[in-house]
Design a protein around this nucleic acid. Structure first.
Length: 607
RNA sequence: GGGGGCGUAGCUCAAUUGGUUAGAGUGCCGGCCUGUCACGCCGGAGGUUGCGGGUUCAAGUCCCGUCGCCCUCGCCA
C-alpha cells in the first residue's frame, strides 16, 4: 500500500552543516532556522541554522522584499550551491553559499526572549521558562548529543559482557529508610500510596535471585530532598548487579565500561585498572571519602610530633582522644593573605573547628602566625621535615593545623585543602589537553554510622551490605569499628557512584538487623518480601550504580548538571516551562481520595 | 527549615546614595547600502522598576510583608 500523502517539495535535500565545495553546481533544498540576516541593499544574506551547522543563503532584493521573515523563523530554501566570492574560513560551510531560487516560510516566530547564541548571558529563570529555545542553542545541543552517545557506549559495553537490560517499576512501594519518597496516591486503593523509586535497589537484588546473573539499566530515580547545582529531584543512574562475584569483578566490569565510553566519546585512553584506596586511608590522607587526587597538599598526622611541642591546644586534642594534623600549602606564605586566613578560619569554624592555627615558617613575629612562638628551633625544624613534600624543603609555605576530634579534623582540613586548591589555582583544567581523569575506587567503608540525633546506628550504605567480617566481630562487637564491603567510584573529587557486595546469608542478615535495632516484626514489615525472596536460593551477588548526570557533566567540564539534563527543575523543584507542580481540580483529588491539609489549605484553592 | 545574593525595556546592565520626562548596549521595526558573516550608517517603537503595603512634598532608591530565581547549611541510606 502506498501513502496517500505526496511528498512536499520544500523538504530538505541536505542539512545546514553538510554542503561543501564538492556540492557546487547542485540544486538543493535546505530547511532551518534564521540565525542572522544581513541586508546590503543589492544583496541579502541569511544564515540558516539547524543542529548540524550554519549555511549562508543569498537572496535578491526582490526575494527579500517579497517575503517578510525574522530571526528564528523556519524557512525552506530552494537554490543552487555556488562558490563564494568572499569565503569565510571560520565556518565549515564557509567556502560555499546557496543562491536562492525559491524561499518559503514554514513557520514564523516572535522575537525570542533569549538569543539563540553560544555565549548566552541570560537569567536562569528565562532560560528554563523557554527551555525549548535554550535547548536550540549550540552548547546545549552538543551536551545532549554527547550524553546520548555516552549512554550508547555504556549500553554496548554492558551488552558485550552479557548484561541484560531489565526495566523495573516506577510505581513501587515506599522505602523505609533513606531519602524522602515521592508519593503517588492510588485511586483503586483509597488511602494507599505508591512511591517513586529512589533507586532500583531491591528489584535488582531480586533479579539476582531470579537468576538473571548480570543485570543493568539506565534507570530514572527520584528523591524528594532539597536541590543543589549537582542534584535534581529526578536523576539517572547506570545501575547494575552481578551474581557469583567478588569486589574485583565488579570493578573490572566498570573499568571496562568507563574505558570504552571515554575512548569512544572523548578519544581518551583510561588506565586498565583504577587505583583502590581504603576509606580509612582516604580520610587520613585527604580528609574526604571522595578525594580529589589531582593535586597534593595531603593531610599529615602530627601525633608523634605533638609531645615535642609546647602548644597546649595540640596536646589537649590528643589527650581527649582526638587527632592533630596539618596541611602544607606550597607558596602559601605569600599567596595566602591575612584576610584570606581570616575567611579560612571562619570556614573552619562553620565546619565545627574551634579555630584555625597556622604558621608561616618564612615570616617573623605576628606575620608568622599565632603558633609561631611554639615552633622555635628543633621543634619547627622537625615539623617542616615531617610535612615536606617528597623530602623537599621549600621556603615560604603555609602550614594549617587541625586539632580536634578525628571527624572534625578530617572534615576541616579536607575542606580547606579543596578551598585552597581552587583559590591558588592548583587544579588542572576540567577539560581539554591538560585535563586529568583521576578515577579511584574507595573501599572498606565503615559498616555503620552513629546518628547523634536518633541515638542509634544506621547503615552507612544500606542494611543489605555485606560486612567484611561475616561474624560481625563475634559476640561483643565494637559496632563503630566494623568494616563493610561497600565501595564508591570517585572521579576528580566527585562521587560518581556507589555499590556493595550484598549479604546473601540469612544468619548474617539477621545479625545486621539486630545490630541496627530492627526486630523481627519490624524486619517483616519493612523488608518482608525481599527477605522472603532472599530465602529462596539467593546467589552471592553485588552491584554498583553510577550517577549519569554527574558523569556526563564532568566529562564536559560543567559544574552544574542542569546543562546535561534536557528539562531540569529549579532549586525549589519546579519546572518553569510546564508549570509543575500545579494544583489539580477538586474532582481529580477526590478521585484519588486526597484532601488538602495544612499549608495547602491556607493558600486558598485557585485550582 | 536556617543563612547569603539577586529581581529596572525582549535580553544584559546604568540611574551621582530620596529629587526634572528612568538611560545605554544589544535585539526588534522602518529607511539607506552588492559581499557581509559581531556588517555599517540614519530613524523609531519598547517600562505596572517582581508583587502588595508603608514613610515622605517627592520612592527604582528607605521600611515592612510577599513571590520567584541562584548559592549554601541541614537533608540526599
Amino acid at each position: 500500500m502506498t501513502s496517500s500523502h505526496s511528498r512536499p517539495d520544500w523538504l530538505r535535500t541536505h542539512t545546514c552543516g553538510e554542503l561543501r565545495e564538492a556540492n557546487v553546481g547542485q540544486s538543493v533544498v535546505l530547511n532551518g532556522w534564521v540565525d542572522a540576516r544581513r541586508d546590503h541593499g543589492g544583496i541579502y544574506f541569511v544564515d540558516l541554522r539547524d543542529r548540524y551547522g550554519i549555511t549562508q543563503v543569498t537572496l535578491t532584493p526582490e526575494q527579500s522584499d517579497a517575503l517578510p521573515f525574522s530571526t528564528e523563523f523556519v524557512l525552506g530554501v530552494h537554490g543552487k550551491v555556488v562558490q563564494r566570492e568572499n569565503p569565510n574560513p571560520d565556518r565549515p560551510t564557509g567556502l560555499i553559499e546557496v543562491r536562492t531560487e525559491r524561499i518559503e516560510v514554514l513557520s514564523p516566530s516572535p522575537t525570542p526572549p533569549i538569543d539563540i547564541i553560544d555565549n548566552l548571558d541570560a537569567a536562569v529563570d528565562t532560560r528554563l521558562r523557554y527551555r525549548y529555545l535554550d535547548l536550540r542553542r549550540g552548547p546545549l545541543q552538543r551536551n545532549l548529543i554527547h550524553r546520548s552517545k555516552f549512554i550508547a557506549s555504556i549500553r554496548r559495553a554492558f551488552e558485550d559482557q552479557e548484561f541484560i537490560e531489565v526495566e523495573t517499576p516506577v510505581l513501587t512501594r515506599a522505602t523505609p529508610e533513606g531519602a524522602r519518597d515521592y508519593l503517588v496516591p492510588s485511586r483503586v486503593h483509597p488511602g494507599q500510596f505508591y512511591a517513586l523509586p529512589q533507586s532500583p535497589q531491591i528489584f535488582k537484588q531480586i533479579l539476582m535471585v531470579a537468576g538473571y546473573d548480570r543485570y543493568f539499566q539506565v534507570a530514572r530515580c527520584f528523591r524528594d530532598e532539597d536541590l543543589r547545582a549537582d542534584r535534581q529531584p529526578e536523576f539517572t543512574q547506570l545501575d547494575m548487579e552481578m551474581s557469583f562475584v567478588h569486589e574485583e569483578d565488579v570493578f573490572a566490569v566498570w573499568e571496562g565500561v568507563m574505558g570504552r565510553a571515554f575512548r569512544e566519546n572523548m578519544g581518551l585512553e583510561l588506565p586498565q585498572t583504577f587505583p583502590r584506596m581504603r576509606w580509612e586511608e582516604a580520610m587520613d590522607r585527604f580528609g574526604s571519602d571522595k578525594p580529589d587526587t589531582r593535586f597534593g597538599m595531603e593531610l599529615v598526622d602530627l601525633a608523634e610530633w605533638v609531645p615535642t611541642c609546647e602548644f597546649r591546644v595540640f596536646q589537649g586534642a590528643l589527650e581527649a582522644g582526638g587527632r592533630v594534623m596539618a596541611i602544607r600549602v606550597p607558596g602559601g606564605g605569600s599567596s595566602v593573605s591575612r584576610g584570606q586566613l581570616k575567611s579560612l578560619e571562619s570556614a573552619a569554624k562553620d565546619l565545627g573547628a574551634k579555630g584555625l592555627a597556622w604558621w608561616k615558617p618564612g615570616e617573623e613575629g605576628g606575620a608568622a602566625g599565632p603558633v609561631a612562638k611554639f615552633m622555635d628551633g628543633a621543634v619547627g625544624e622537625e615539623l617542616l621535615a615531617l610535612t615536606a613534600v617528597d623530602g623537599a624543603t621549600t621556603d615560604g609555605d603555609l602550614l594549617l593545623f587541625g586539632a580536634d576530634a578525628e571527624r572534625i579534623v578530617w572534615r576541616v582540613l579536607g575542606d580547606l585543602r579543596l578551598r585552597l586548591a581552587r583559590q591558588l589555582d592548583l587544579l588542572p583544567p576540567a577539560t581539554g589537553d591538560g585535563a586529568q581523569w583521576n578515577f579511584l575506587w574507595v573501599t572498606h567503608f565503615p559498616m555503620f554510622e552513629f546518628d547523634e540525633a536518633a541515638g542509634r546506628y544506621f547503615s552507612s550504605h544500606h542494611p543489605f551490605t555485606c560486612p567484611e567480617d561475616e561474624t560481625l566481630g563475634g559476640d561483643e562487637p565494637d559496632v563503630s569499628k566494623l568494616v563493610s564491603r561497600a565501595y564508591d567510584l570517585v572521579l576528580n573529587g566527585w562521587e560518581l557512584g556507589s555499590g556493595s557486595i550484598r549479604i546473601h546469608r540469612q544468619d548474617v542478615q539477621a545479625r545486621v538487623f539486630e545490630l541496627l535495632g530492627i526486630d523481627a516484626s519490624e524486619q517483616q514489615l519493612k523488608f518482608g518480601f525481599l527477605l522472603e525472596a532472599l530465602s529462596y536460593g539467593a546467589p552471592p551477588h553485588g552491584g554498583f550504580a553510577v550517577g549519569l548526570d554527574r558523569l556526563v557533566a564532568l566529562t564536559l567540564g560543567l559544574d552544574s548538571i542542569r546543562d546535561v539534563v534536557a528539562f531540569p527543575k529549579t532549586t525549589s523543584a519546579a519546572d518553569l516551562m510546564c508549570g509543575a507542580p500545579s494544583r489539580v481540580a477538586p474532582d481529580q483529588l477526590a478521585e484519588v481520595h486526597v484532601a488538602p491539609a495544612g499549608k495547602a489549605l491556607e493558600r486558598d484553592g485557585s485550582a
